[in-house]
Design a protein around this nucleic acid. Sequence first.
DNA 1: TTAAACTTTCAAAAATAAATGAAAATTATT
DNA 2: AATAATTTTCATTTATTTTTGAAAGTTTAA
Lengths: 168, 168
Amino acid sequence: MELAEGKLKFIEAWGKLGSEWGINRTMAQVHALLLVSPEALTTEEVMAELSISRGNANMTLRDLIDWGLVEKLHKTGERKEFFYAEKDTWAIARRVAEERKKRELDPVIKILAQLTEVKGDEKDPAYKTFKTSVNDINKLAKNVSKTLDTMLKAEESWFFGSIFKIFK
Amino acid sequence: MELAEGKLKFIEAWGKLGSEWGINRTMAQVHALLLVSPEALTTEEVMAELSISRGNANMTLRDLIDWGLVEKLHKTGERKEFFYAEKDTWAIARRVAEERKKRELDPVIKILAQLTEVKGDEKDPAYKTFKTSVNDINKLAKNVSKTLDTMLKAEESWFFGSIFKIFK
DNA sequence: TTAAACTTTCAAAAATAAATGAAAATTATT
DNA sequence: AATAATTTTCATTTATTTTTGAAAGTTTAA
């Protein structure tokens, strides 16, 4: 396979995975494009490579910056802005996990905590089932949260190395 | 908070979380409803509780069955079908992880494997960056996959218990 | 300060995803 | 076998998400 074809396949695959996980397809594609680009790209270049509009490119790049996955660079003598993607895969995974935890998991945990406070008749099966399900999910969510926190603090080596020693 | 209000809040929160993670909002809501229902419900009941159409209820319930989260029951003397949700939170988490891995992660890993085969000029920065990024992501994806496989085989206690001993 | 270069915004349009509901298909009952 | 109950399908409608592109805003340089 040629580089050009591989690049397209990579961008396509990354975009598909993103959209299946609730991330805008274009955002994932722009990220993929920047990931395989050795140099920082301009908005114009992103627009041309992916055939997207200026507005879309601008908003998507801004989102990627918000996610901490891309940084804006200025080249001396150049007027326009350049965009460069963090290339460290482990750092990327951490940023994404961190951001989604904060944006999505944490709010749910807050609501679950409130729901464990719901009072009712202990004899009522509807109440008992509600309470059990909410309590169990709450416990799971808190454990996931705790595990993520630990992973986020850990170094790359934790994931790529020693962790597997505890698995048979 | 009253049970009725709590139930609504739970269904709403579960639906929102689902939609943020690429799962149809209604599907997550139907799942939430069944999770807090002590008895198996009929299609009619699901339709009424969530104000959705028969077609929607039917398709959603079928999807939940495909995901292995809900089972169809038949009550003696009753003509219609009843739907009951698996209540074990750990089992639910495992089913979801397993299914998404199979449906979404595995295909991407296949593509990444192909992309590591792309040949090119080792002097070309574009090629070098492509190769490095693809290789790194491939390595991460395979590690995630391996970790998930191990978790899927493990027992609940693994997650809720001993794992935390390795964390400080 | 003016004008050109560039970036951002956002209302409207397009694309995509989800829901409806009535008809068709299936299944059970008499 | 006819009919009644129930489930499934799917063309159409509705809702949601994403993209566009032109206008407004901003920055830089002469």
